[in-house]
Design a protein around this nucleic acid. Structure first.
Lengths: 254, 254
DNA sequence: CTTTTGTATTTTGTATGCAGCATTTTCTGT
DNA sequence: ACAGAAAATGCTGCATACAAAATACAAAAG
């Protein structure tokens, strides 16, 4: 996250001379940022610029660098990121389909603004999806996969005890994403990811008090227990309850 | 649908002379096709080219003009549609986010191929969403809105009796979309629309026998009755059953 | 005959230029 | 001083031009 700052900050100088060279250099900067240290299987396919741009813009929106209602200025943004308008526009169109920005004819794109009702509606759908995911996961997940989620959970608890809110949030999201994945239903995982992305911005803001935070952790404790017991009824119920509570936790923040 | 044919067919001539003039003319052709005869409220905002292109490509994929696995050739497609590569690429990126095409780095985009399991998974999620939508719709829909759905339903039955499969399908989809909309949950409607779009291609193919078709109509009869009675339990159950059956109807076609 | 390597062509990816529209600023008449 | 019109500015939308990558093809080596 923080690595992106320099890219955004070093600019707005009107210096345009020797454009192509300077831009190419900056582009490489961006690319290098995204080179994952994956030692995993498969070829080390270098991330395409399109994906990188989409990721950057997404992060900027989620983190609040681009608040809701902000007009995405193509020229300015392109200069900041060191790319020309063309790939930038393509990334924006992609995000528009994802629902993060809105396209206004002849007036470009603006960061979508979500009302409290929108958030509540999204959480309602997310709840339904997670209930389904929980049921399916209990049936289809392997023991190894469940163990991985357990590991995430334990790490999350450690972060909670350390008071590391940021990492806690990250792991929290990862756990929910993992459960969606465990359902072995790609469409479900897709829809879940999309909603989660739209909600990230909100959750990112929602700072809960200590007691609510503790409650959330307790719910996660129940979740992982139900998953390990492959108790689909309980898991589904807990996941549903967890999101009902989530709404109560963020409602005043929205 | 058929209006698009001429645009696609009149081409592949290497004629490039006086490009800008010719292309402008063709662009206007496309735009004029999409001018809806809406007498609805609000200004008659002319459809932007981006939306038009997205719609065209979507249709071409759904209707099978661009079968799964087809590589979207930018130069060729652009010439066919009478637009340059730039807006075309933007439309493709949009569709990629929608899940209709897949982006392969340095190799363009290909029409996504759905396995039988993919279809089944999508129907599973759609089922869950429609069950939710049914419950919400019973609570929040106005009588007038329900009457509109009833009108769609009656029209659909007429098309069924007339044996007009194409219009039947269209109205069928519209009814399901309408129910999703009646939930007054934008996120739900969004996710529903996205899944429905991905599935359109499949349903478009699935040619059921007369008896299965009759069964589907009977289920719709139940649906509309439950909606008018605002019987959310029954409506949810029928919608769920309807999609379980839908899978049985298309499973061998996939 | 197969495989490999070098070259040519095609296709994608990115940058730039130009035209139209929206908004804002300035000018003019009262 | 103020309302309205007209010009000017800035931005988006589309097309084109250019660069890099991939594919196809051909020739040469094994």
């Amino acid at each position: 996250m923080t690595e992106k700052a320099p890219i955004q900050s070093d600019v707005l100088k009107g210096e345009t001379a020797r454009r192509s060279e300077a831009q190419t250099r900056q582009m490489n900067e961006i690319k290098s940022l995204e080179q994952r240290p994956v030692g995993g299987p498969g070829p080390i396919r270098r991330t395409a610029l399109h994906d990188t741009l989409v990721g950057h813009l997404r992060d900027m929106i989620i983190e609040g660098n681009l608040p809701p209602g902000t007009r995405l200025h193509e020229g300015q943004l392109g200069e900041q990121l060191g790319v020309s308008r063309t790939p930038l526009r393509e990334a924006i169109k992609y995000l528009a389909s994802e629902g993060l920005v809105e396209l206004v004819p002849s007036r470009g794109a603006v960061v979508k603004r979500f009302s409290a009702k929108d958030v509540r509606d999204m959480l309602t759908v997310l709840q339904t999806l997670e209930e389904l995911a929980g049921r399916l996961a209990c049936e289809t997940a392997t023991d190894a996969e469940i163990a991985e989620v357990r590991a995430l959970h334990d790490e999350m608890v450690r972060r909670y005890e350390a008071g590391d809110r940021m990492q806690y949030y990250k792991l929290n999201q990862e756990i929910h994403t993992a459960i969606a994945r465990l359902s072995r239903n790609a469409a479900l995982a897709d829809m879940h990811a999309m909603l989660q992305t739209r909600l990230k911005r909100i959750r990112f803001i929602g700072h809960e008090g200590p007691e609510k935070w503790a409650a959330a952790v307790a719910e996660h404790q129940e979740m992982i227990a139900a998953l390990e017991a492959r108790d689909e009824v309980t898991l589904s119920e807990v996941l549903g309850r967890h999101l009902t509570k989530a709404w109560e936790r963020v409602r005043e923040a929205v």
